[in-house]
């Protein structure tokens, strides 16, 4: 849950990148880390195994724009994608404000995508949260690889909750649409603070 601090004039948000193993969550954070100016970012912390697989989480603190006199601070986390680390994923989801679900567009990964999204809903439910109620966007990653499913199929398989959410065709290795997805989920977070909060009612936007 976000914290608004009137003493330091700061608002803190927590965004978690979720998705199946090897879908590109850490690559998303690594790309963002390379693009943000040093004064607006902290170190990218990776708690990974010797083989560079995420063991606990990756963490990247960022400062963003000032809104209404408040500096916005974002904490980006990834979860370990491997199935066995579910207890860890539940820990990382604590007090989450926004989710970027990173899916792997390759046909042979579709089952893992669907399983991971189901796991996300289950883990949120354990802390009385509902994916349909929080800021949430979808990434269809690895669009540059051969053997990827068309966007329409990705939508059919993954963007099928109570409401259609914003989805992005992403190539996290080159950074394509990585910031578009981050900006979208951040905007949704801010809209939660508007009285006439209608972030969930907006038409879904697909960015090619």
């Amino acid at each position: 849950m976000s914290i608004i601090n009137y003493a330091s004039r700061e608002i803190q948000f927590k965004i978690v990148y979720y998705g199946p193993a090897l879908c590109g969550k850490t690559t998303n954070l690594a790309y963002i880390h390379t693009q943000i100016t040093p004064e607006n970012k902290g170190d990218l912390v990776s708690l990974a195994t010797a083989a560079d697989r995420t063991l606990f989480f990756d963490f990247l603190p960022l400062n963003a724009v000032v809104i209404k006199g408040f500096k916005t601070k974002f904490q980006l986390y990834t979860v370990p994608g491997q199935v066995i680390y579910n207890a860890t994923r539940q820990l990382v989801l604590r007090s989450v404000d926004g989710i970027v679900f990173v899916s792997d567009s390759q046909w042979d990964k579709m089952e893992e995508n669907i399983e991971s999204l189901k796991n996300l809903r289950e883990n949120l439910a354990k802390q009385n949260m509902d994916l349909d109620e929080i800021a949430y966007v979808l990434q269809y990653n690895k669009r540059d690889l051969p053997g990827v499913a068309p966007v329409e199929y990705m939508d059919f398989a993954l963007n099928n909750g109570k409401k259609r959410v914003q989805s992005f065709e992403v190539i996290s290795t080159t950074g394509q649409n990585v910031f578009a997805a981050l900006n979208a989920v951040s905007q949704q977070l801010l809209y939660k603070f508007t009285k006439e909060s209608d972030a969930g009612k907006k038409d879904p936007i697909s960015v090619a």
Binding site: M1, S2, I3, A7, Q12, K14, G42, D43, V45, L47, F56, F57, F59, P61, K73, Q75, Y77, L91, V92, R94, S95, V96
Partner: peptide, 25 residues
């Protein structure tokens, strides 16, 4: 969840945001 509520002391020796995230984890 790793969010900082408040802090006091020598804040220059480390990135407190990262310490908070790791401590919570």
């Amino acid at each position: 969840g790793g969010n900082i509520i408040s802090q006091q002391g020598d804040l220059n020796v480390m990135d407190v945001t990262i310490v908070a995230a790791l401590a919570a984890g």
